[in-house]
Computed example of a mutant assay.
Amino acid sequence: MTTAHGSDSWTAAVRRRLDLGRLLPLGGAADGTWLAEHAAAVELRRAAAEVPGTVLGAVRLSPADPDAAEESPVPPPPSALPPGRLRIEAEFGEEFTDMTDEPLPAVADRLRAVLFDCATRRLGLRIAEIDLRVTALLERAAEPAGETAPRHTEPTEPVEPVELRAATPEGEAALTAASVPGVACLTRTLGTAVAGTPGHVRIELATAAGHRPLEVARAVRKRVAAGVPGGPSVAVLITAVNVAVDVAVDVAP
């Protein structure tokens, strides 16, 4: 019989998994790395703030061509998307004052360029296309009180950071991974920081601010494969990026 406590723990685990969103292939098939969709959306939202007057709404990443999916050389995390190029779909609102403002297509082009740069250069995702849809025209924040309501529905689904469940490194693979520069901490959103089968390990982690996630993951895979007896294959799941290195370790069950 499942106890109330056990049921609550299972529900919380399912909620944490859903909060991560899709597990996106990071880099190419040979990189054996995945990035939580939620972490990618947080970074895309941060990048979009660089485009004055825009408010990014819902963001979704999905395979650009499911039929062109590649085969991963290492076992992927549960329910992870196969390697391949991705499509970004996003909604945004644009502030306006009068007809002299920059045309919306030009604004969309600037926003698209910023999102592409963030996804490819900062994160390491392979992006095939970015579809943007204007869902709101917003009054300037400087307008007098009572005149700031949007003409249409404001962009929805704000993205907030997922609760970070950091883990204390235990075992050779975990200690090796945690020592790699750019690893803020190991995480345990899917259960444990290190999981696997004979000859293979999956390492879940968060990357530190100022470090490119794909480069960190490559370093982790290389060091763990070389440092752990038997030279296991290694998969990496990144659940958060740009995390402070002094993050507190969560030891709650």
Rank of each mutant, 00 (worst) to 15 (best):
D31V: 10
T33Y: 00
T33F: 04
L35D: 10
L35N: 04
E37I: 08
E37N: 02
H38A: 14
H38P: 00
A40T: 11
A40H: 10
V42T: 12
L44Y: 00
A47T: 06
A48G: 12
A48D: 14
A49Q: 09
A49D: 12
E50H: 05
T54P: 14
T54I: 07
V55W: 13
L56N: 13
L56T: 01
V59E: 07
V59A: 07
R60E: 15
L61W: 13
S62E: 11
P63Y: 04
A64R: 00
D65C: 08
D65F: 06
D65G: 01
A69Y: 07
A69E: 08
S72Q: 03
V74C: 12
V74M: 01
P75I: 02
P76T: 00
P76G: 03
P77V: 00
P78A: 04
P78M: 01
S79Q: 14
L81I: 13
L81F: 01
P82Q: 06
G84S: 15
L86A: 07
L86S: 05
R87L: 15
I88V: 15
E89R: 10
A90I: 02
A90K: 05
E91D: 10
E91S: 14
F92L: 09
E94H: 08
E94Q: 15
E95N: 05
T97A: 12
D98K: 08
M99K: 07
M99I: 05
T100R: 14
D101M: 12
D101K: 03
E102R: 14
E102V: 15
P103G: 01
P103K: 03
P103F: 05
P103T: 03
A106P: 03
V107Y: 05
D109S: 09
L111N: 00
R112P: 08
F116A: 14
D117I: 01
D117Y: 08
D117E: 13
A119F: 08
R121I: 08
R122M: 07
L123A: 10
G124E: 10
L125C: 04
L125A: 01
R126C: 10
A128H: 05
E129D: 04
E129T: 09
I130L: 02
D131R: 11
R133F: 05
R133Q: 07
V134A: 13
A136P: 09
A136C: 15
L138G: 05
L138V: 06
L138S: 06
A141E: 13
A141V: 15
A142M: 03
A142L: 14
P144E: 02
P144L: 02
